[in-house]
Simulated assay, not measured.
Amino acid sequence: MPWFIKTRSTRDAKKKRRDEIWIRCKSCNAHIFKEDFSNNQNVCPKCNWHGKLTAYERIGITLDSGSFAEINETITPSDPLSFVDAKGSYKEKVELAREKTSLNESIVTGTGKISGIDVVVGVMDFRFLGGSLGSATGEKILLAANYAYDHRLPYIVFSASGGARMHEGILSLMQMAKTCAGVARLDEKRLPYISVLTDPTTGGVSASYAMVGDLNLAEPGALVGFAGRRVIEQTIKQKLPENFQTSEFVQEHGFIDKVVHRKDMKTTLHKILSFYNR
């Protein structure tokens, strides 16, 4: 074989090295060093596109270092319908998600501090079955709300979800009412519930606890809505605006109180919590 002919293995190795060093921004298509992207909290330094964070990455940039203590970490999904589709069983999908993420569910809940202020947090992780709302997800959100109620603490939930987990049928859908009831009870003790919407927040999550905060915040450019764009256009037979279902569009129409850049989120939350603590 001539020395100048590249073999498939050589090309694959070079592509792998590129993939290990660079990422491409999904908004402006700019190539960014992975290290720079990570150091910038997964935000594109050129166009401010906000990439996804894992639950623990978000906890790391939001809570004071070393202050987080997880609660109810052993709660895991059940399979009440013994659900199976063309791609396999629900049980298998859950196991794959647990192996991929090292999480037991699509949300991590716990206590911590934001610039010295004690809080209860719930942080969704889109990697776990699209951040879907299952019965165990709802249970963890409710139990965290109960913990906030019992200990008189503010409650903050970061949403990142494609919606209800239909593998569980009506048991998934009932979590919408269950979680809303849990956070509504905080009002009895005048405890703040702050909802932070990240990309994406859709379906049954956007139709329940994600949109009923005392304050609803969102990251720039996040997809926020219920049904998908194509479904809506086909239903109403109209072309929707280009920025439809972005956090900026939703804020303009009164459903979100403030769009907050990721680098400013901790400071903004601290200012809000300081107001409630006066």
Rank of each mutant, 00 (worst) to 15 (best):
D85Q: 01
A86H: 07
K87A: 11
G88I: 15
K91D: 06
E92D: 15
V94W: 09
V94Y: 02
E95M: 10
R98I: 14
E99A: 15
T101I: 14
S102Q: 14
L103K: 00
N104K: 08
E105G: 10
I107A: 06
G110T: 09
G110I: 05
T111P: 02
K113Y: 15
K113T: 14
S115N: 15
V119S: 13
G122S: 15
D125K: 02
F128N: 06
L129M: 11
L129H: 11
G130H: 09
G130Y: 05
G134R: 02
A136V: 03
T137F: 02
E139T: 07
E139W: 00
L142R: 11
A144E: 06
A144L: 03
Y149I: 09
H151M: 02
R152P: 05
L153P: 08
L153S: 04
V157T: 12
F158L: 15
S159N: 15
S161A: 12
G163D: 03
M166H: 13
E168F: 03
I170F: 04
I170G: 02
M174W: 10
Q175A: 03
Q175C: 07
M176G: 10
M176N: 11
M176H: 04
T179E: 07
T179R: 03
C180K: 15
A181M: 12
L186G: 05
D187R: 13
E188N: 08
K189H: 02
K189T: 00
